[in-house]
């Protein structure tokens, strides 16, 4: 959300309405371009992925966080630093699986969905699926294969928005020679 020119640790303010409406325009355009909601969901995820793989560089440069030692630490960084920096919200982390490889991000309010009401003919649309793609793309660039999906959505009548994150594996192959 901040411009290239004044990149710093502080984030630049922008109108949240502009941001929300821009995202809304994007999603509705996709709905017009694709026949069914599944294709739109897939496309949003793909776009998010492409954002994520770029955004992680920006994130690492600005946040000065070091390497995470376990998935719990990663979860903390995502919720407390990344979401705060880019969306201005701090989701809470709950529902850890016993093995520690799955957790939920609970978003009390999702800035992407201000004003939005899903029409009845788009009941299977995952409106904010872009976020899942961003998380997946960003973590992939730091050698973590994860799966992210929405399990609750305020747009569908749930009380909160919940993103379920599952750690799949470490990506060893992409490590450049000589590191670690």
């Amino acid at each position: 959300m901040s411009r290239q020119a004044n990149r710093g640790t502080e984030s630049k303010k922008m109108s949240s309405e502009l941001f929300t409406l821009t995202y809304g325009a994007l999603v509705t355009q996709l709905c017009k371009d694709y026949e069914n909601d599944e294709d739109v969901n897939k496309q949003l995820d793909k776009m998010g992925y492409n954002i994520g793989v770029r955004l992680i560089e920006d994130f690492l440069a600005r946040s000065n966080v070091g390497r995470c030692h376990d998935f719990r630490e990663t979860a903390d960084v995502i919720a407390k630093v990344a979401f705060k920096m880019y969306l201005g919200i701090t989701p809470s982390i709950t529902n850890w699986s016993p093995a520690g490889d799955e957790f939920s991000l609970i978003l009390e309010n999702n800035p992407l969905v201000d004003f939005v009401e899903l029409p009845d003919n788009h009941s299977s649309l995952i409106y904010s699926n872009l976020l899942c793609g961003v998380l997946r793309g960003a973590l992939e660039m730091v050698q973590m294969a994860v799966e992210a999906r929405f399990v609750q959505d305020t747009l569908k009548g749930d009380g909160v928005t919940e993103i379920r994150m599952r750690f799949i594996r470490r990506i060893e192959d992409n490590l450049p020679a000589g590191e670690e």
């Binding site: 309405e17 929300t20 409406l21 995202y23 809304g24 325009a25 999603v27 509705t28 709905c31 201000d114 004003f115 939005v116 009401e117 899903l118 029409p119 788009h122």
Partner: peptide
């Protein structure tokens, strides 16, 4: 105004 801001409207 909120209705107008709904992207699906």
């Amino acid at each position: 105004t909120d209705v107008m801001c709904n992207p699906f409207y």
